[in-house]
């Protein structure tokens, strides 16, 4: 159900972008105003999001420990699954952010009938799909820098060379575009296929996937099939960068669809689950060291609570304490 609504929404948006790119009035809109507005929403939205998170304090130190703590010096500890120092915690975060450490934990045990031992198989498809998608997207994004910088930065050229290493096709095929689309396809496929995941999926889950697929797909199409006027595109993007927007007429309408969908993505980003990207850096179960007993954590809103003091307790059980011959702080009660 959600899968269909999301698909229809994306189709409408894509068509709007495509048609908009053909009419001269809307072309200017899509080529200049929409991207500016989208970037504005993106920046303000993300800042607002992160500030909102950061404004809520972390009252307790609650890391999820996924390995041996630091206790006795002769016990080998898990430095990065149960970090003790800030440095180790940073490594844990890096493993999480760059390599998706937690998703990598999905081992599956297999009983082999003949053998005496259990076999552990790695069930890593979700991890692999997610990793391929995110890394591909990063490379694709960096590659796009060539549209925004004149001359193209050396690092981008290097990246392009690596990405197009196999020198297949003309223009050379960049693998990350293909892997990104394939990984997205896998992520969509598993969302539809695994009943539990499908059951919990919302409109936004499909919408984000379709949107990214449409962007990647249109990008690939532009590069390899439409082979649009790159010079014109660069004129447009550099114009946007320097706040002197120009909208060349030589650029294919499909490009405007691509641009429009990217704008939609940017504007949608801060209000959707896609904010998990900045969010992970703030996750208290991951970004805190497991040194709760060594370094006191301060709760900024720690407030006094109603307790049962020893004096009250002794008073309440005075007779019983005396009968049992247990020591008292005050030999006679207040009520004598």
């Amino acid at each position: 159900m959600h899968a269909w609504t999301a698909l229809i929404t994306i189709i409408i948006l894509a068509v709007a972008g495509y048609v908009g790119g053909q009419l001269s009035a809307t072309r200017v809109l899509i080529g200049t105003i929409v991207p500016y507005v989208a970037i504005g929403i993106f920046l303000v939205g993300i800042a607002w999001r992160v500030i909102a998170w950061a404004r809520s304090p972390v009252p307790f130190r609650i890391p999820t420990t996924c390995g041996q703590q630091k206790s006795l010096p002769w016990i080998k500890r898990a430095r990065f699954d149960s970090p003790f120092t800030p440095g180790e915690t940073i490594v844990r975060m890096l493993l999480e952010v760059l390599l998706f450490r937690s998703l990598f934990r999905n081992t599956r045990a297999e009983l082999r009938r003949e053998g005496p031992r259990l076999l552990y198989e790695e069930e890593k498809w979700l991890w692999l799909g997610a990793l391929v998608f995110h890394w591909s997207m990063l490379v694709v994004l960096l590659r796009h820098l060539r549209f925004f910088r004149e001359p193209t930065p050396a690092i981008v050229l290097l990246l392009q060379r690596i990405d197009g290493f196999f020198q297949i096709g003309a223009p050379v095929v960049y693998w990350t575009g293909v892997t990104m689309l394939a990984a997205l396809g896998y992520l969509l496929w598993r969302r539809l296929k695994i009943p539990q995941v499908r059951y919990v999926s919302l409109f936004t889950d499909y919408f984000a996937l379709y949107l990214l697929m449409a962007i990647a797909g249109s990008g690939i199409w532009l590069r390899y099939f439409t082979k649009t006027d790159i010079v014109g595109v660069k004129q447009l993007t550099l114009g946007l960068m320097t706040f002197t927007p120009v909208v060349p007429t030589t650029v294919a309408p499909l490009f405007f669809m691509h641009l429009f969908l990217v704008s939609v993505l940017l504007a949608y980003f801060p209000f959707s689950k896609l904010v998990h990207m900045p969010g992970i850096f703030l996750s208290p179960t991951r970004n805190l060291p497991n040194n709760s007993r060594a370094v006191r954590h301060i709760n900024p809103w720690n407030y006094p609570v109603k307790v049962h003091t020893y004096e009250e307790w002794e008073e309440e059980f005075r007779d019983k304490l005396i009968a049992a011959g247990l020591p008292l702080d005050k030999e006679s009660g207040n009520h004598v």
């Binding site: 999001r49 909102a52 998170w53 950061a54 404004r55 809520s56 304090p57 972390v58 009252p59 609650i62 937690s102 998703l103 999905n106 979700l126 997610a130 969302r191 695994i194 539990q196 995941v197 919990v200 999926s201 919302l202 889950d205 689950k273 904010v275 998990h276 969010g279 992970i280 703030l282 996750s283 208290p284 179960t285 809103w301």
Partner: peptide, 22 residues
């Protein structure tokens, strides 16, 4: 939401990947 960053964050960032399901 104002007192616990954990709560605020966990309300926002789940992508429903289903890694936790089973």
């Amino acid at each position: 939401l104002q007192k616990f960053r954990s709560f605020r964050l966990f309300m926002d960032i789940c992508v429903r990947c289903g890694a936790c399901a089973d």
